[in-house]
Nucleic acid binder design. Structure first.
Lengths: 126, 126
DNA sequence: CCGAAAGTTAGACAGGTGTCAATATAGAGG
DNA sequence: CCTCTATATTGACACCTGTCTAACTTTCGG
């Protein structure tokens, strides 16, 4: 039973008291924090483009050496952003020889997509 | 240098035509900045829960008075977060009498969902 | 081993963010 | 007009972020 019986109340206008019960909270604070961390990682243009490039590459992975040239920031900054994407669980990485390759973690990405797609965002219930 | 032109374009409405060459560049810098702004707004637990509550409410809108009690932060802080969600174009608001009601802007939410759903992050084609 | 190349880490720093208390503003109801 | 209630705005402040340069680590080629 997902969503508790939310006693819907027309609350159409502003007659008396304000609004409805609203007790059935759709996103519990704990889960919200986890999701927020992922969204936060995407909340920077450089990181969003990085994930986009990594996800869109036909090989399914991208060498860092191919990424750095596409941005106006220094290499350490790219490294910093990739680290945040990693810590958010949005990408995985592997070293092969001198180079490091990044892959997208699509399940995690889909998790966010599904949350936003649910018109009522009511996946997890408290 | 750096910092893409980002022609402001705040809570812009349109935003649907889109789509890009894609083969070469999956997410152009300009569009990335716009999307990043929305993601950034969702990158805070309080704001994510706020949007969740607003989106999940059966009435399709929520009175601010019903939101403030659900958080551990002071009222001005809730007001601050709602403002950011507004500026990101994720929610709309309307005053009715003494109270203010917030509604989700589902098209914008779907825009983000679609971006993440595309396995290659190709922008949704018009 | 040595030195060069690819990435990451460390330290520093300007600017941004989230929070609160205090104050302002807008309606509702005398 | 005055006051009360609901939100928003302002100002202050501790903390977090994104960026750089410098230095370090790992690995490959002699």
């Amino acid at each position: 039973m997902s969503k508790v019986a939310v006693a819907s109340e027309p609350a159409g206008v502003s007659s008396q008291g304000c609004c409805a019960p609203l007790e059935a909270v759709p996103l519990d604070p704990a889960h919200a924090a986890d999701m927020a961390k992922m969204f936060k990682a995407l909340g920077d243009p450089v990181r969003l483009r990085l994930l986009s490039l990594i996800s869109a590459h036909p090989d399914g992975e991208v060498c860092v050496c191919d990424l750095t040239d596409l941005f106006d920031v220094a290499a350490p900054t790219i490294s910093y952003h990739l680290k945040l994407l990693r810590e958010a669980g949005l990408v995985d990485h592997e070293r092969r020889g001198t180079w490091v390759y990044y892959r997208p973690m699509r399940e995690r990405m889909y998790q966010l997509s599904a949350l936003l797609a649910a018109s009522d965002m009511a996946l997890p219930v408290r």
